[in-house]
Design a protein around this nucleic acid. Structure first.
Lengths: 230, 230
DNA sequence: CCGTTAATCAACAGCATTGTCAATTAAGGG
DNA sequence: CCCTTAATTGACAATGCTGTTGATTAACGG
């Protein structure tokens, strides 16, 4: 038996190998979630020996963490594209309303589309980030929360916004919406439509809230009564 | 060798055993998440032989599903307590604004507190529900979404609300907020305060939205331009 | 009191995964 | 061209979990 199809030993390329592993890990995370990820599976998909994976990432946990950090930077690129100015060092300027509106709208749509195009992995990333002692250490989370702060301080935002709560609430929605969509829309067209649908509701909510103004007085008093130190 | 401390065979009590297993599963889900749940661990915590667990729940998957359904009904009880009227058969009545306001506020707080008191398990439940072909089959999800619909149809809600999106967005926030809180507040007092904080922001958001009215026109046009059929 | 049912348990086989290690060998520098 | 470095690999031991099965034996009805 001549070994016709014997697998060649992989050409050495540490950097490339590392990327291949990360890419494979990202794919598996996207498909099977964090629970379903095994180093064996990742290595097989990356076309790499399992031992090699352990050479690049000491522990399975390190592999997952590195993958999520990588995803975070991709998220940053995909959502905050170059047409958006880099974060200005906290200067108190009055914000251009037109710019603010278009930023919010396009941002919302981009984020929704990214979440829809990378089901599961966004959710896993979010959970991981929120679990950290300081979520702000994550590049995307920091940028996102910072944007909300800018909105508030710039004067375009409503008064009394709890930035941290709002950030968590919004991000959670963006990344769990694809889960609901999952079984409802399989075609690319349908998924894109679902991203638009979510983005539209977020914008509507940002503008008008949920309840009509009539109920405001009642809710206000209830807030003061039941939630004293909120 | 007298067998001094030999474990007695468990007194037969199928119903009680089943409950003990469910309780243990709920605890483990709350601590280690769905990934960390093993039938071995559940059985050990419940003080039951692993085989017994398999007698009550054919497959591990069945055990998890049964536990989550059980949690869902507990959630229903905890949040929609008796002071709230049972769901009326879709009659188109003008809603009492006062009642609506107090319902929303107390509901919001109760849900936030439940989520905070049962970290992880709520999140796992939500993910499971959203993954199903028809989330409405879950008792709590159905009830929640139904409430939002009532709000909209009753006339107290803003126009153009996308009920399904709003429901997913809100639920996601409620159940992921405890993750962010996790490392920030350990004492019971602090956790309760965090629940109030979230509930307050939800109510504020429901009333006023995120952005000031100035930006509405811009966002509206952007909506029509970029999101044609949303 | 006896016989049936089924709740409980211990043990088994199979499988996947994890982390480690020593051997191979490609790459690069002197 | 040789020698060192380290990237890559296959193999190993340990672990934990799953689902199954056959043996106990408590509960219960006739």
């Amino acid at each position: 038996m001549a070994r016709v199809e014997t697998r060649q030993r992989r050409r050495r390329d540490p950097e490339g190998t590392r990327l291949a592993i990360l890419e494979a890990a990202k794919t598996i995370l996207s498909q099977d979630g964090a629970e379903g990820l095994s180093v064996s599976g990742v290595a097989k998909l990356a076309g790499v020996n399992r031992g090699t994976a352990y050479q690049h990432f000491e522990l399975k946990e390190d592999l997952v963490r590195a993958t999520l950090d990588w995803v975070s930077s991709q998220l940053l690129e995909a959502v905050f594209t170059e047409d958006l100015a880099p974060p200005e060092p906290a200067v108190e300027v009055e914000v251009d309303i037109d710019d603010m509106a278009s930023r919010m709208a396009s941002f919302s749509l981009r984020l929704a589309e990214f979440a829809m195009d990378h089901p599961d992995i966004g959710r896993i990333w979010l959970y991981d980030v929120l679990s950290r002692p300081n979520p702000r250490e994550d590049v995307f989370y920091e940028r996102f929360a910072h944007s909300v702060e800018d909105l508030v301080r710039g004067g375009a935002g409503q008064e009394g916004i709890d930035v941290e709560v709002l950030a968590v609430l919004m991000l959670s929605g963006f990344f769990l919406w694809p889960v609901w969509v999952g079984s409802h829309a399989r075609s690319k067209r349908a998924r894109k439509a679902m991203a638009q649908r979510f983005a539209a509701e977020v914008l509507r909510l940002s503008m008008h809230g949920v309840v009509r103004a009539d109920t405001h007085a009642q809710l206000q008093s209830y807030l003061r009564e039941k939630l004293p130190d909120a």
